[in-house]
């Protein structure tokens, strides 16, 4: 079975379950499952012993689970569970078909743009900790989509922000994940340490570059032996794209 179909099936189940909850079913709100909520809660919990706004213990336990997962398998959460990553991936696939030409972003610009997600993380934490409210919900695609532009979104401002993210994702693959996701920024140091990595066998590699073309994050497994980049989500697209048997594999490496 193609691993991508397995991954997409799991993501479809996640999206289905969140939609079911967002429609008012189940015991908890869909927001209760967001691990980033665990980060947003930490300050309130340590200072006042209370969860921020609509957040609760499940947000915190999901955060712990994701940190463990990231230490083991890098940002696997992003490509195997996160509905926004899934949406970004689908939009990128559509973008490749409908956007004329190939939009190339240089490595140095890419590196500078990636700093935006740290600004995004700092802004979310600053405002949440300062106010004790989830006041940036209006800019959060996860909340805006699953709440159906619910309480806390900002009408036209939210629509504009979501449209820009969608257009960005059509033009630059994984636009939100690469440049804006605050959870991705928070996971970076843990992902860097992630034990299970993509490993390239130099002897069988023919340096065709198919792995880099297939990588949604534009990473280049062909330039390294062990891929340590914190952006790798272990989606395994590169492994499946590689034409040489047993050339790209997963290995344990500190």
């Amino acid at each position: 079975m193609k691993i991508r179909y397995l991954r997409w099936s799991l993501l479809t189940v996640v999206v289905g379950a969140l939609t079911w909850m967002a429609l008012g079913n189940g015991e908890r709100s869909f927001e209760a499952y967001c691990p980033f909520g665990g980060i947003e809660s930490l300050y309130g919990l340590f200072r006042e012993g209370q969860f921020t706004c609509a957040l609760g213990p499940l947000n915190l336990s999901m955060l712990v689970a994701i940190l463990v997962l990231t230490l083991l398998a890098k940002k696997a959460f992003c490509s195997w569970v996160c509905p926004i990553g899934f949406l970004g991936e689908l939009l990128s696939k559509i973008g490749i078909k409908i956007v004329p030409g190939k939009f190339q972003i240089s490595e140095s610009v890419n590196r500078w743009f990636k700093l935006l997600r740290y600004i995004s993380l700092a802004a979310v934490l600053f405002f949440t900790y300062r106010t004790g409210e989830l006041i940036l919900r209006g800019y959060d695609p996860f909340y805006a989509i699953f709440s159906g532009m619910g309480h806390g979104t900002l009408g036209n401002v939210t629509i504009l922000v979501m449209s820009l993210i969608a257009i960005g994702s059509l033009v630059i693959p994984m636009f939100f994940c690469r440049y804006l996701c605050p959870l991705g920024a928070a996971l970076d140091p843990f992902s860097k340490l992630g034990l299970i990595k993509i490993c390239r066998n130099e002897e069988t590699c023919i340096e065709c570059g198919e792995c880099q073309t297939a990588c949604p994050h534009g990473l280049a497994p062909q330039d390294t032996i062990f891929l340590r980049d914190s952006d790798c989500t272990n989606c395994l697209e590169c492994v499946e794209a590689c034409p040489e048997e047993e050339t790209l594999n997963l290995k344990l490496k500190l």
Partner: peptide, 16 residues
């Protein structure tokens, strides 16, 4: 030693 690629979904499901 190579690890099976199915380790990733197994880890994802067990941690979630």
């Amino acid at each position: 030693m190579n690890i099976s690629k199915y380790i990733i979904p197994v880890l994802v499901l067990s941690t979630m």
